[in-house]
Design a protein around this nucleic acid. Sequence first.
DNA 1: GTGGTCTAGACCACG
DNA 2: GTGGTCTAGACCACA
Lengths: 127, 127, 127, 127
Amino acid sequence: MDASILTIHPASPEPIYRQIVDQLRRLIAAGQLAVGERLPSVRDVAGFHAINPMTVSRAYGLAESEGLLERQRGKGMVVASGPTGSQSARERMQLLEPHLKETARQAQELELPADTVLRRLKHLLGN
Amino acid sequence: MDASILTIHPASPEPIYRQIVDQLRRLIAAGQLAVGERLPSVRDVAGFHAINPMTVSRAYGLAESEGLLERQRGKGMVVASGPTGSQSARERMQLLEPHLKETARQAQELELPADTVLRRLKHLLGN
Amino acid sequence: MDASILTIHPASPEPIYRQIVDQLRRLIAAGQLAVGERLPSVRDVAGFHAINPMTVSRAYGLAESEGLLERQRGKGMVVASGPTGSQSARERMQLLEPHLKETARQAQELELPADTVLRRLKHLLGN
Amino acid sequence: MDASILTIHPASPEPIYRQIVDQLRRLIAAGQLAVGERLPSVRDVAGFHAINPMTVSRAYGLAESEGLLERQRGKGMVVASGPTGSQSARERMQLLEPHLKETARQAQELELPADTVLRRLKHLLGN
DNA sequence: GTGGTCTAGACCACG
DNA sequence: GTGGTCTAGACCACA
């Protein structure tokens, strides 16, 4: 798998390692990363995105301890077989739920009409 | 103004002072805090939410330097008159835009159908 | 003496009471406020500049304890007779010295050529 | 960069953190701190000047939110690329303007002759 | 190693 | 009464 599967925003306030872990969680839940599939090496990811290899390594380590990844001798990291891989739409929806709740809270603080928000999100989802 | 206008999640990864500034930005943009309105005192907010006064003070100070609040000497902080107060729906929408973009990105990583996401958000907005 | 002799910037970071005391010190040193001259009442100053009477009162009190002013029964505050009134140019220059030192320091941090700074100040003094 | 670039007056009425931010603004505008240059660490500055690290941290944070500095994660603060770096003499002059205006005002209150003030400032700038 | 956040508490400045 | 500043120190997050 190519290092470009991960999107990194080094300037974002969200820590880089968490950007990686969160993306892995979603991509694996959706099956975009299939069980057993090899991940790009720490070196590749770090080089491609110009970030510190230690940061990538840490992210992989956290993903492993979360059961998302497994270390295979000689092959590096692969997507773990287990309860996390390729989940139902209902389970995947739950991963998005906290973010949606926050969206709703902010929209209400901004007193934005629901349909304005929904229309905009629909447009963004259409891309 | 009552200290309860602000919602604080002490356990959130988002720093408390930033929770406060972000909320103020939205509440002021929406006009829920009107220009010239007095804010709850640092001590009131700190006491009400059981957090350190300095944390609140820091948030107020940042909001002031951002032009959201003004200090009235000896009286406290009031909502600043200026370009930030009571904005149009279009401007308020822009404050939500980055969050919505991230929502869309996560939904796509999760390969969630657009209508599922929209239905859920609609429900959350209906509260 | 009219309340307009004092210039107040309520929005300045410099505290109002100190703006008053510092101005009195300079105006008295220069003889613009003559020994024995009556000052505008606390009420007049506060009303004219829309500031808190307590602030003016405090400034007058400090000026009194510094020997700049004297309280005369029935007349209010008057400029004190004493070593502070109507000083020589040399003595008045010393009141400006700290400010000039700071000017020089900032100009050097900004790497501004001396003649540029002097030309500008000359122009400002010419008004 | 050495912690000695910054000058701190702990006894000054101007708060320490503002002394730092103001100096940074000028040093960066003049290019004495070049774009991309690393700043002394919070701990170095705090140790060198015997002040609390949090005070320095606060100054750095404000300078960051003003666009003067950028955080390089894990490495420290560097001078930001952007509109604030290395400005023209004209722009730098504007940073001094308010201070010069105040100088002129005080000189006039003291009824000091322009040439006396200018001669003194010239001498101070000659150092 | 870097900076960030928060607390507890003292003390000050201002009105 | 209001907010501001600073300290000492703990602990965390990040690279």
